[in-house]
Design a protein around this nucleic acid. Structure first.
Length: 965
RNA sequence: GCCGGGGUAGCCGAGCGGCCAAAGGCGGCAGACUCAAGAUCUGCUCUCGCAGGAGUACCCAGGUUCAAAUCCUGGCCCCGGCACCA
């Protein structure tokens, strides 16, 4: 098919209004959507994956005669569009090029510097791309989350949730860009320039008082090791600052002090050179002993507070730093106490064992195991630290008297509680690596008081949601198993933010903007209303709380301003499309979007209107399995194509087929252009086969009966696969098995005629869900209207012929046997098959096999003795008494592993004779002869006829001198 | 650590008790077509075998079963999530 024809068919579908979802009383409906994309850049082929599953499902249901609705919107909330428009303003070359390619003029471009306009523009752009991909999206549903009507809907949603007790207030720590406002730190780096893979670590601070009343504040991840402190570390030549907090004066490095101010308030005072502190002593909490302050270059000012408590027995870093000290300093530090025991050796894994060999403190052993020789060997030190921390966290128990036997993880909590009891103890949160926002500023973690939360920890709400989750069908099923535990740990989530974000003002406090995840949980319901808005039948001022309460929840009186008939029509429309059949999204939604989507539906709607299905797909990755983001689209030329380029190169159908067949939907896969090309080639084959199949004549009757019967079978299986939403199996049948079937029909001597024509007709229809453009191209002239709006055939339209199918299966088995013999003789240059003589099993063997089958079905092992006992009552077998034991011994074990024979009995000899010409052609035999086993003796020089079994004739291939090389 | 998913032929990736030496694709080999290349078509692609067979195989070690890539147990290793990112 000429790729340029795709656009032609897309226009034809549009002209026929195929995408427009209609409510037809008495008709079943199908309502599914793809979780809407965020407007963060231009799309690449990876973004099409969800549509490659969803659109075929819609098309399948349409071809069953159901009414379907496929909506789409854009999730403009948050920073993505803000960032994109800012980059545009700053002249980002990739964006400018993208706009130029799309023919955007200068005045439009200027308008896009407004983030909301940018979001709408990108949304339209996505719509164009999905349309070009062949997706039949109802464009009257198209909405962005920054449209005024959507905002009205969200305000209602939050008031409704509040009324339902779903909102609470509290305190919260959150990543914030000091300039741009709150950001999300995650691997997809939607809001970030870098650092999306950073973790948040939570240090505990431990106060070490100097004699003068000032306090050095050490930060640690292992507060329980305070019992093993031998000294404090500061960085040589650096400076600390005083952090004034309430009545305390704490010494810490500036970066840490700044974080403390963000998270706990207070202010930063004057500087104190670290050197002035070196050699002085501080008091260790709990123990009351004094330890010295020493210098080591290992201390990194940017981590924690820049003041480190030294625990040489358990921290490899400290042990190594201690060894590097001048002897005079070294002596000031006593022997480090060991605080933790890691239990019996038997429990260790090999790598744990390795960490524990030899003498010395745990830290010294770890240093040795990893091979750290030098304080400068940062990577090795890091490894030793991680391994030892892990081992002690998992297996360690405290040995200090006050915590004797307590597991490390519990001891950690107790020590922190104790510290709190004795005075101020601050938690200090920070990122494991620098996090830079989209606009280049360093992101910090800040305390947010009076934060609004969605009360997801509410036991009653959680229980309702879990009960919904148990009813929802998930693809893959594994996700359904995961859901309960995801919901279990789902706690309250902040749902409002401040900053330069796009979103809807929070109705209970307009100072705040609703957080992006929280405003996209119930939108499948809004699409239904949006159609009335975009058609001009509802105005913004009609969208009141009373209106939504009536439409979504049936609560009277409804909005009096809206005409009662219209009000009821919108309600009816909602009740028609709801519940949602599928929410389709990538695996990144498993822990955030899908759970909150369930939560919201569980709270706002009764069970019969709650969602029915969630479909999770994996990612399309770049080389090496990395996820690709939209911002990489234009920079990464090469394997990952921007959508338009891909569509020009291969057309939408090849891509669609590629996505459906390349891997299981839940798997990630690496995008591979050669795979798309293979799909394109396959479609070319199919196109040719369908065109060649046209005809009106008759083929050989047995073959025609077989092909028609086989068509019955594949139609049934294909429908079954689509019904089970198993697109992959459906595609395998339609795109692999059917062409193979047709080729075999021709190879067997069939000819294009009315049976192939009927097959091609059914085939064309079944090509439509996954490769709709090709289907239209092939259906042109063959069907009245568009293929996409035709009905799929039912299996019953094709007559079953069990006899014909059994004959072909029989022949297939014979060919397998012939091939395995011929393969063995392949290497022999001096031999080639001449005549093929077949020996068909005598009827008594069939009786015998029936008996063998019976004993296998009774879970018994067939024995010669049992069989011989039974022969007495069967005179027709007595004549073969001599052969029976050998046969039972040979065939008995085989029967068990074979499938239960089904289908009618056929005349094997006649079938072989009828296939003579085929066998001669296929295997190069000189001639073919067929004998019943009992008459074969004169023609059986090698004594092969004994091998004959029912359904598996014996044969002898008479050699002839090969023509030679 | 906890939760979830995995480890399948040269590679990607299906299969998840018996028609499994294991789909499909890529790569490789041979043949057809061609002046040739490419494209396309046909066949082959674990080892051995001059007869439909045998031997090894689906991370490792055990086990259940007449039968295990598939089920169970125990290892080893890998990936994702562990919170504010549709």
């Amino acid at each position: 098919m000429d790729a340029s024809r795709a656009g032609h068919w897309q226009e034809a579908w549009a002209a026929a209004g195929l995408a427009h979802g209609r409510r037809v009383a008495g008709h079943r409906k199908f309502y599914a959507l793809v979780a809407y994309p965020g407007p963060s850049g231009f799309l690449h082929v990876g973004h099409l994956r969800g549509f490659a599953y969803t659109d075929p499902l819609h098309r399948y249901h349409r071809m069953l005669g159901e009414e379907v609705l496929f909506p789409m919107g854009v999730h403009a909330s948050g920073l993505p569009a803000v960032t994109w428009s800012r980059r545009l303003r700053d002249g980002d070359p990739a964006i400018l090029q993208g706009l130029e390619e799309r023919g955007v003029d200068a005045s439009t471009r200027a308008r896009l510097e407004d983030p909301e306009e940018a979001a709408r523009f990108l949304g339209r752009e996505y719509l164009r791309v999905f349309r070009r991909f062949g997706a039949l999206i109802d464009e009257s549903t198209f909405v962005t989350t920054v449209d005024d009507d959507y905002r009205a809907f969200i305000r209602w949603q939050f008031r409704a949730l509040n009324e339902a007790g779903a909102l609470v207030k509290g305190t919260h720590y959150s990543p914030v860009c000091p300039v741009c406002g709150p950001v999300a730190v995650d691997a997809s780096e939607t809001d970030l320039q870098s650092g999306g893979d950073a973790d948040v670590v939570r240090f505990s601070t431990i106060p070490f008082p100097l004699e003068d009343g000032r306090v050095l504040l050490a930060a640690t991840l292992r507060p329980e090791t305070v019992y093993g402190v031998t000294n404090l570390w500061v960085a040589p030549g650096e400076t600390l600052v005083v952090w004034h907090h309430e009545s305390g004066n704490y010494l810490a490095a500036r970066p840490g002090a700044e974080r403390l101010v963000e998270q706990h308030g207070g202010r930063i005072g004057h500087e104190v050179p670290a050197h002035d502190l070196v050699g002085r002593e501080v008091t260790v909490p709990f123990r009351g002993t004094k330890v010295p302050i020493l210098e080591t270059p290992v201390v990194d000012l940017s981590i924690g507070t820049g003041v480190v408590m030294s625990v040489p027995a358990h921290a490899p870093m400290d042990a190594a730093a201690l060894d590097a000290l001048p002897p005079a300093d070294r002596e000031k530090v006593g022997d480090p106490p060991v605080l933790i025991d890691v239990g019996p050796r038997e429990a260790w894994t090999a790598s744990e064992e390795e960490l524990n060999v030899g003498e010395g403190s745990p830290a010294q052993r770890a240093l040795r195991a990893v091979g750290v020789h030098d304080l400068a060997d940062a990577a090795a030190l890091q490894e030793a630290t991680e391994r030892l921390y892990r081992l002690e966290f998992v297996r360690g128990r405290m040995t200090v008297p006050s915590l004797s036997g307590v597991p490390v993880r519990l001891a950690r909590e107790r020590v922190v509680d104790q510290l709190r009891g004795e005075g101020p103890c601050f938690e200090l949160q920070e990122f494991t690596k620098p996090v830079i926002c989209r606009n280049g500023h360093a992101v910090v973690i800040r305390r947010v008081p009076d934060q609004w939360f969605l009360h997801y920890s509410d036991p009653a709400w959680k229980a309702e949601t879990k009960s919904l989750a148990a009813r929802v069908t998930t693809w893959p099923v594994e996700y359904g198993r995961e859901l309960p535990s995801i919901l279990d740990w789902f706690g309250d989530r902040p749902c409002t933010r401040r900053g330069v974000w796009l979103g809807t003002r929070f109705p209970l406090d307009p100072e705040w903007i609703i957080e992006p995840i929280a405003d996209s949980t119930f939108y499948p319901a809004y699409f239904v209303v949006r159609r009335f808005v975009s058609e001009g039948r509802l105005r913004l001022e009609d969208l009141t709380d009373a209106f939504f309460e009536f439409v979504f929840r049936g609560r009277e009186p409804g909005e009096p301003r809206v005409d009662r008939a219209l009000l009821e029509e919108v309600r009816a429309e909602f009740l028609y499309w709801y519940p949602l059949d599928f929410n389709v999204g990538g695996k990144e939604h498993k822990r955030v979007h899908f759970p909150v989507f369930l939560y919201t539906h569980a709270r706002l709607l009764p069970p019969e209107l709650q969602p029915r299905g969630i479909y999770v797909h994996g990612w399309v990755t770049g080389p090496g399995g990395s996820k690709i983001s939209k911002k990489e689209t234009s920079t990464k030329a090469g394997r990952i194509r921007p959508t338009d380029q891909a569509m020009e190169e291969w057309g939408p159908d090849a891509l669609r087929l590629y996505y459906v067949t390349v891997a299981s939907p839940s798997q990630d896969f690496e995008f591979d252009p050669t795979g798309v090309e293979a799909a394109l080639t396959r479609l070319g084959d199919i196109e040719r086969l369908v065109r060649e199949a046209a005809g009106t004549g008759e083929g050989p009757p047995e073959l025609d009966a077989w092909l028609e019967s086989a068509t019955h079978t594949w139609v049934k299986r294909a429908r079954g696969a689509f019904d089970a939403t198993d697109l992959r199996t459906a595609a395998e049948i339609v795109y692999v098995e059917v062409p193979r079937l047709l080729r075999r029909y021709y190879a067997r001597g069939g000819l294009p005629g009315h049976v192939t024509d009927r097959l091609a007709r059914a085939w064309t229809l079944f090509l439509s869900p996954i490769t709709p453009h090709l289907a239209e191209e092939l259906g042109e002239g063959r069907f009245e209207g568009l293929v996409a709006q035709s009905r799929l055939p039912a299996p019953e339209e094709y007559r079953l012929s069990p006899d014909a199918e059994a004959r072909e299966e029989f022949l297939d088995r014979v060919e397998d046997d012939l091939r395995s013999v011929l393969r063995a003789s392949e290497g022999r240059g001096d031999w080639a098959p001449g005549e093929a003589i077949f020996y068909v099993a005598d009827p008594w063997k069939r009786t015998l096999e029936t008996w063998l089958r019976e004993s296998v079905d009774r879970k018994e092992t067939p024995t010669v003795r049992d069989v011989m006992a039974r022969v007495k009552d069967h005179p027709e077998l007595s004549a073969h008494r001599a052969e029976i034991p050998k046969y039972v011994e040979r065939v008995g074990p085989l029967v068990r592993a074979e499938p239960v024979p089904e289908g009618p009995r056929i005349d094997e000899a006649a079938t072989l004779r009828a296939a003579e010409a085929y066998l001669v052609r296929r295997f190069g035999f000189g001639s073919v002869a067929v004998y019943p086993e009992s008459e074969a003796a004169p023609h059986d020089p090698k004594g092969r006829r004994d091998r004959a079994r029912p359904g598996r004739p014996a044969f002898y291939l008479v050699g002839r001198p090969s023509p030679g090389p």
